[in-house]
Design a protein around this nucleic acid. Structure first.
Length: 898
DNA sequence: GCGGACTGCTTACCT
DNA sequence: ACAGGTAAGCAGTCCGCG
């Protein structure tokens, strides 16, 4: 089978001339169907959405799914003019399938296969097996519906085939491939669909739409990047640039929050039971509508609601009517935003409707595997999105710690939830309405601040991952990467290997990790030179690991490939070799993404000559790329990743060690003093710009890697500890890395004094100013010490350590750390605790030497333990300044021993 | 029976 | 549900100590 070009695969065509863009009807109008004569009994989502008309203006694919009633895949399109959702049903006869190495003539003899109710037919197809580097013939077993392939606990073709063959033929070499891919993903891959991108319909076909501006923009990117780029790389740059350059539409949406009555004040009602009425709902939309729906109840204080004039308040006599109103909104908006709606709001409404006897067609919510989706639009649960670790760290820079609406909103918007003085069920209408409305407002604002940053981020991730928006917002980075790699397999007609095939063909790791229990050796950290160093340049390799994947051609297909002639292309410090004959798919996909971020999107996001709006868009793109690139090496070493390949991960790390080592040696050879380095960075003491240039050129020429100056420190303070330093930049801002004084769990009392020291250091400009700073630091530490010693704290909370429970308190079997001891005391008082909860405790004199702050009194505090903690915290800085904690606080040797 | 040396567990951090 | 490396504190264990 011929490999399709990207152009063909994406179905790109010139935009139609004179394409009369029809403005759709207002979204609030009737829901009359334009299906044009489908006689099948309508079922969800089919009945709630209009079928896309042939003159549909360019519309964005936001979701892809499978229609059980019609037995075909469908695509949800968002039309940005009318701001409505339309459906398009597959009309190409695409069907679910699996691949197997069992020959057709054998399969035809198996009744359980050919008489399976979902069985359709068998074909023989050719696929390229990248593990063996050869084209193989496989049998394609096509089914009538996706559940016949897999997804049911028993009786699926993917289980039947190996079962039958091992029983009947005693064959253990039976292989089944690609049977665990969700059908809607399979459809996206086979059709080369680009979720998040605009499409039009022509002769009933769904066709990708790119306007002339978009094409010009893509051409501009390519022209800029093509200079020093190998030819085979260009199509990939082009593919990504098309997805990334196309602007985002305005996404019409509504945020929903509900409040539920609870007979027990402290308990939130169980959504699966949904036994209590919904007493309030707020709907706040991007088109400026704010509605509060309240349930009339006996004995609730009426009075003035005291809500802003633009809020529409509606009272309902029954929660049945209230639900109906909510549901009509859910059937109208293309995007519905919640915070924890999968688990609570939509889940509750779904079950409540069931309990109230709603018929299925009157409920716009569908529930499957902990997800609540909508038959009409797309449900984005922001809780799930913000919970994503990669998003949390790389897109939002750790600005929020705990994923609660209050904390995320505080961190990103500077806004909070309203504080309740009473349980929800006891609030007056006004209090309830204001509370609920505020939640919906900040939920919406989390998607709209910074010019819709979150919506745009989701859209970009949708495009890169080639997944429906619902899925992208709920799944992790390894699923996103898997998805675009699978897509590329299908485009190139490559067999998607099973995880065990990769392990069997490529083996495991050989190096020994420094940390017990890890699979292989990781990065190098250079011992810092202790002391204060002025004029320090920090150089680092731009996206080191993605660069290695690109330049050294890494991937599951190229590590330990089958060719004899490649075995001399060794990875340093390992027996692994890398293929010289073929380019790995990973090196192309990840490498091109890396180049686009490093050379185009990141610089553009900082280009002050561009309009703010444009720069912000580039910033969204470069953040999305950052999230993906940061994980692109890690996934190779993660068992949960479906293309898990330990030797590839190990090789990347080994090459990284080699690169940083060679660079350090080169720097020293050039006479530059290297005072520290970690993984991909070098701290250089007082280097001349010529030497920096020389080193950078050397890296480019001999390693093929970009080594740039990341920043200049006015000075850096190192102790002997790795991953532990303080650096002052030219503008006086301070970078503190790894020091205890900056860690989140330490008592505020100590943190405040640490911050004061940081402040003193930020003002030091020259070595001569240092002496005065040292005296100031001594004074600060003395003050802190005296305050503690004299027990002068205002509030116990100031002394509390805040440590997060990694698991529920009962689950600590091997040891009982201090925060767990405190947690157990709280639990003994009936306070429920779970993994992720933060325990606030103080150190006390008597056994067991800890107490939760809530239970402790001031006189129980063990001051000496705090002073010891103070000592070790400040030692990290004092070490480097040649100061002694005990001398500063005036402890003589004698006192120290008493 | 006690204390120091040691290992292991746990959390928070760095790249 | 991306990886490994480092710091630090404490819990628990082992062993010596005539």
């Amino acid at each position: 089978m011929r490999q399709k070009t990207l152009e063909e695969f994406c179905g790109l065509i010139k935009p139609p001339k004179n394409n009369a863009l029809r403005t759709g009807e207002s979204a609030s109008g009737d829901e009359a169907s334009e299906t044009g004569g489908s006689e099948l009994p309508a079922a969800k989502p089919d009945e709630a959405i209009d079928v896309a008309p042939s003159n549909l203006p360019p519309s964005y694919i936001v979701s892809v799914g499978y229609s059980g009633s019609k037995g075909v895949a469908y695509v949800k399109l968002y039309e940005p003019v009318s701001q409505r959702i339309y459906l398009w049903y597959d009309n190409t006869g695409h069907k679910p399938y699996l691949l197997t190495n069992v020959p057709p003539e054998t399969l035809e003899k198996i009744d359980r296969v050919v008489y399976h109710p979902g069985f359709d037919h068998i074909e023989v197809v050719e696929k390229y097996d990248a593990l063996l580097d050869q084209t193989i013939k496989v049998t394609k077993v096509v089914a009538k519906d996706p559940l016949a392939i897999g997804g049911r606990p028993r009786g699926c073709l993917r289980d039947i085939i190996p079962e039958e063959l091992s029983v009947t033929f005693g064959d253990s070499g039976v292989k089944v491939w690609e049977s665990a891919i969700k059908y809607h993903q399979c459809y996206i891959y086979d059709k080369g669909l680009q979720p998040g991108m605009p499409y039009i319909i022509r002769n009933g076909e769904l066709i990708s739409y790119l306007d002339e501006t978009a094409k010009r923009n893509v051409a501009r990117v390519l022209e800029f990047l093509s200079k020093d780029t190998p030819k085979d790389f260009l199509p990939y740059l082009e593919m990504w640039a098309r997805l990334l350059e196309y602007p985002a539409p305005k996404m019409r949406r509504v945020a929903l929050d509900i409040e539920v009555y609870s007979p027990i004040a402290t308990r939130v009602p169980d959504p699966e039971e949904a036994s209590q009425p919904v007493i309030c709902a707020s709907l706040v939309s991007s088109d400026g509508v704010k509605r509060v729906l309240l349930l009339k109840r006996e004995g609730v204080e009426e009075g003035d609601l005291n809500l802003p004039p633009d809020v529409i308040v509606e009272f309902y006599n029954s929660d049945r009517d209230l639900l109906r109103s909510i549901f009509s909104v859910l059937d109208e908006y293309p995007f519905v935003i919640t915070f924890n709606g999968d688990d609570f709001d939509l889940n509750y409404l779904y079950h409540r409707a069931k309990n109230l006897g709603f018929s299925k067609k009157d409920v716009p919510i569908e529930r499957r595997e902990k997800i609540c989706s909508l038959r009409y639009g797309v449900h984005i649960d922001l809780y799930r999105f913000f919970l994503n670790r990669s998003i949390q760290i790389y897109a939002f820079g750790q600005k929020y710690r705990n994923v609660t609406l209050d904390e995320v909103a505080k961190a990103l918007l500077g806004k909070s939830k309203l504080v309740l003085t009473k349980p929800v069920s006891e609030l007056s209408y006004g209090e309830l309405a204001r509370y609920c409305l505020n939640d919906a407002e900040i939920t919406l604002e989390l998607t709209s601040y910074n010019d819709d940053l979150v919506m745009k981020l989701l859209l970009i991730l949708t495009r890169i991952s080639r997944m429906p928006m619902e899925d992208v917002s709920r799944q992790g980075v390894s699923k996103w990467i898997r998805s675009f790699m699978y897509y590329e397999h299908r485009r190139r007609n490559m067999l998607i290997p099973n995880s065990e095939d990769i392990i069997a063909a490529r083996g495991t790791t050989v190096t020994k990790a420094i940390i017990k229990g890890k699979k292989y050796m990781g990065a190098i950290v250079v011992k810092p030179v202790p002391g204060v160093h002025f004029n320090v340049a920090v150089m680092d390799f731009q996206s080191l690991y993605p660069s290695i994947i690109k330049v050294y051609n890494l991937g599951y297909q190229t590590v330990r490939c089958v060719h004899e002639e490649c075995r001399d292309n060794l990875v340093p410090e390992t027996p692994h070799w890398i293929c010289k004959k073929h380019k790995s798919l990973e090196s192309m996909l990840i490498g091109s993404l890396r180049d686009l971020r490093v050379k185009w999107y990141k610089p553009k996001s900082k280009d002050k000559t561009l309009p703010d709006e444009q720069r912000e868009w580039y910033n969204v793109i470069q953040s999305a790329l950052k999230v993906i690139l940061n994980a692109s090496y890690g996934v190779f070493g993660a068992e949960i990743f479906d293309l898990y390949c330990p030797p590839a991960a190990e090789a990347i790390a080994a090459i990284g060690r080699n690169i940083i080592t060679l660079t350090i040696n080169k720097a020293r050879e050039l006479g530059i003093e290297v005072i520290y380095g970690d993984t991909d960075s070098l701290f250089l003491k007082n280097p001349s710009s010529e030497k920096i240039r020389e080193l950078s050129d050397w890296a480019e020429k001999t390693l093929g890697m970009e080594l740039d100056v990341d920043k200049y420190y006015r000075y850096v303070v190192f102790s002997y500890r790795k991953k532990n330093y303080l650096g002052v930049l030219d503008d006086g801002s301070v970078d503190v890395k790894g020091l205890t004084g900056k860690k989140r769990h330490i008592p505020p009392f100590i943190k405040r004094y640490f911050d004061a020291i940081e402040d003193i250091l930020s003002r030091v400009k020259t070595p001569s100013e240092f002496e005065r700073a040292k005296r100031d630091i001594e004074r600060t530490i003395r003050e802190c010490y005296m305050k503690l010693k004299n027990r002068e704290w205002e509030d116990m909370n100031d002394l509390a350590f805040e440590v997060v429970l990694g698991k529920p308190p009962e689950a600590y079997i091997k040891t009982t750390p201090q925060h767990v001891k405190a947690a157990l005391m709280l639990q003994a008082r009936g306070i429920e605790l779970k993994a992720g909860d933060t325990i606030r405790f103080v150190k006390t004199i008597k056994e067991p030497f800890v107490k939760p702050v809530q239970l402790a009194t001031s006189k129980e505090i063990d001051v000496d333990k705090y002073i010891n903690y103070l000592r070790s915290t400040f030692d990290q800085i004092l070490d480097a300044l040649n100061l002694e904690f005990d001398e500063i606080v005036g402890l003589t040797r004698l006192e120290y021993f008493i």
